[in-house]
C-alpha cells in the first residue's frame, strides 16, 4: 500500500470537494484507543454495543460500538488483520460457523437482539444478506443461484412468482440484460464481475434489510469494480449497507460514513468526508496518508 497517499490525492482531486490531507492536524495521539466520533446513525437499522470477539483465547475485536443506518453505506477500513471481516461477520452471526469463535456484547436488528433465543439465525440471515470477497456462486445455473434463497425460505408460492423474483433481483443487481437469455447456464461460467453481481442478486432475492459486503471488489478488475460501486450506490436507496474495503478511494466513493479499525479497536468513525479530510485520531491520519497499512 505504499502508493496509497499518491492515489489518495488523485481521488480527492477528482472529487472536487475534498481537499488533500494537510497532515499533522489530528489531535488525538496514537496510544488512545477510545473510539473518536459519533457511533450513532440517524435511522439505525443495526446497533452494535460493546461487541468483543474471541477466537479461542485470542481477542480479535475489543468493545466496538457502531450503528448501521438505513439508506446509507458505512465503510469499514483499516489495515489487514485488524478485524474488519470478523466484525462484519458478527452482524449476521456467520461467526457461529467458526469453531472456537465467541461473540459478546449487544447487537440488535430493528431493536431486537440478534442473539435472542426468539431470533432465529435462519431469519436473521434472510434479513441481513452477505456478499463475499471472492465471488462464490453455487455450481448451479444462474437461475438456481438466485432462486436458492427464495426456495429455502419458501418465499414464493409457484414457479411464476419465483421467476418474477429472480428477474427483479437480477435486474436490481444490474445483471439481467447480460444473462436473460441464458439463465439455465452455470453461474460459475460468468466473468468475475458478473459472478459478483450474481452473488449480490442472490443476496437481494430474499428481500434483506441490510447487506454486508466483505471486500466485494478485491478480486475484480477496475471496470467490474466501477460497475459494482455504481450498483452499491443504487442499492442504498432500499437497503442499509456495510462494506469492508481495502481501498480508501472506494470508501470515499461509495460510503457516507467511515469507520477506521486498528488491531481490533474501532479508532475513529464519522462522515466519510470528515474522516478522510480531517481525521481526529493520529492513527487514522497515519493510515489514510499512507504512513502504514
Amino acid at each position: 500500500m505504499d502508493t496509497v497517499s499518491v492515489e489518495n490525492e488523485v481521488i480527492m482531486a477528482d472529487d472536487g470537494i475534498v481537499k488533500p490531507v494537510a497532515g499533522g492536524r489530528a489531535t488525538i495521539d496514537r496510544d488512545n484507543r477510545e473510539t473518536v466520533g459519533d457511533v450513532t446513525a440517524k435511522n439505525p437499522r443495526m446497533r452494535c454495543r460493546e461487541v468483543s470477539v474471541f477466537y479461542g483465547e485470542k481477542q480479535a475485536i475489543h468493545d466496538v460500538s457502531l450503528d448501521v443506518g438505513s439508506n446509507e453505506v458505512i465503510a469499514l477500513i483499516g489495515p489487514s488483520g485488524c478485524g474488519k471481516s470478523t466484525f462484519l461477520r458478527c452482524l449476521n452471526r456467520m461467526n457461529d460457523t467458526i469453531d472456537g469463535c465467541r461473540v459478546i456484547g449487544d447487537i440488535s436488528l430493528d431493536g431486537d437482539s440478534i442473539f435472542d433465543t426468539k431470533m432465529d439465525v435462519v431469519q436473521l440471515r434472510a434479513q441481513v444478506g452477505m456478499v463475499f470477497q471472492k465471488p462464490n456462486p453455487f455450481p448451479k445455473s444462474i437461475f438456481e443461484n438466485v432462486a436458492y434463497g427464495p426456495r429455502i425460505h419458501g418465499l414464493t408460492r409457484d414457479k411464476t412468482e419465483l421467476e418474477a423474483v429472480v428477474h427483479t433481483s437480477l435486474d436490481r443487481a444490474g445483471l439481467l440484460d447480460e444473462v436473460k437469455d441464458r439463465l439455465g447456464e452455470p453461474g460459475t461460467g460468468l466473468s468475475g464481475g458478473q459472478q459478483q453481481r450474481l452473488c449480490i442478486a442472490r443476496a437481494i432475492a430474499v428481500n434483506p434489510e441490510v447487506i454486508l459486503m466483505d471486500e466485494p471488489c478485491s478480486a475484480l478488475d477496475p471496470i467490474a469494480t466501477a460497475r459494482i460501486e455504481e450498483l452499491i450506490d443504487e442499492l442504498r436507496e432500499q437497503y442499509a449497507i456495510a462494506i469492508v474495503t481495502h481501498s480508501m478511494q472506494q470508501a470515499a466513493r461509495v460510503s457516507q460514513r467511515t469507520a477506521y479499525f486498528h488491531l481490533g479497536d474501532l479508532i475513529e468513525i464519522g462522515e466519510t468526508n470528515q474522516v478522510f479530510t480531517n481525521p481526529h485520531h493520529q492513527l487514522t491520519e497515519d493510515y489514510i496518508t499512507g504512513r502504514f497499512g
Partner: peptide
C-alpha cells in the same frame, strides 16, 4: 459460507 449466509 455462501449457503449459510443465505440462511440455509
Amino acid at each position: 459460507d455462501g449457503s449459510y449466509a443465505m440462511g440455509a
